[in-house]
């Protein structure tokens, strides 16, 4: 058993587009320690989103070894990957991806419900909500929230079940400078305060600078920065 949150060896992912095979990842090796905040940067087509999807259990790897919090992702069934998304991983997306019909609070609670989290009181999470500055916006639906507020709700939703890994895909991609800064500071604060392991996909070096470490990808491989 390793103390790392993520252990990746020779990870490959091949997509089939008709008769054509497209290799999105071509032998990735990466270790991420528990409590680490890592930014993965690279141009479009570098494979960073594929890596994000594999680590999030959204798609299975083709070959190699991927250990996430001790779980071998290559061996997981669809159902086990669903469980991984439920309990082990939290997502923050560029487009926020809140359910438009529910309020901010309900968006957070539905994640708790799906995970089967019946905790009646969670002081740590309430502290987090204070940190996120959301307590007076919880009864609003997404359309009544600013982009920054929506992204903070998405962060709250992602961490409500205390996931081992928080995956953020271009979390500031749709935000202005002020809100981007606020969201990045929040991610860094969550990392420092809760020792939350975070992997952030970004193409922005300034955003990556908030992380403890930056990993560069190009053409499906990790390359020196």
């Amino acid at each position: 058993m390793t103390s790392n949150m993520v252990e990746i060896h020779q990870l490959t992912k091949v997509y089939h587009q008709g008769d054509v095979e497209v290799a999105a990842l071509r032998g990735v090796d990466l270790s991420i320690a528990k409590g680490e905040f890592v930014a993965i940067v690279g141009p479009s087509g570098s494979g960073k989103s594929t890596l994000f999807n594999i680590l999030g259990g959204l798609t299975p790897p083709s070959a190699g070894t991927v250990q996430l919090n001790g779980q071998d992702l290559l061996a997981l069934t669809d159902s086990e990957r669903t469980d991984l998304r439920k309990r082990t991983v939290g997502f923050v997306f560029q487009k926020y991806n809140l359910l438009p019909t529910l309020t901010a609070q309900e968006n957070i609670d539905i994640a708790r419900y799906i995970a089967g989290n019946q905790t009646s009181d969670d002081p740590q999470f309430q502290e987090t909500l204070k940190l996120l500055g959301l307590t007076d916006r919880l009864n609003h639906k997404p359309r009544a929230l600013s982009g920054g507020e929506q992204q903070r709700v998405a962060i709250a939703r992602a961490i409500v079940n205390h996931p081992a890994l928080l995956l953020a895909d271009e979390p500031t991609g749709n935000l202005d400078t002020e809100n981007s800064t606020r969201v990045l500071e929040l991610l860094r604060d969550l990392n420092h305060r809760l020792h939350q392991t975070i992997i952030m996909i970004t193409h922005n070096p300034e955003a990556a600078a908030y992380a403890d470490r930056t990993v560069h990808m190009r053409d499906g491989r990790i390359v020196p920065g």
């Binding site: 204070k130 940190l131 007076d136």
Partner: peptide, 18 residues
């Protein structure tokens, strides 16, 4: 990691409710 003092956004939000 874990050494920075956090500044809650709530502290700047008037009418804070838990």
């Amino acid at each position: 990691v874990g050494t920075q003092k956090l500044t809650s956004l709530e502290s700047t939000t008037p009418g804070f409710v838990s």
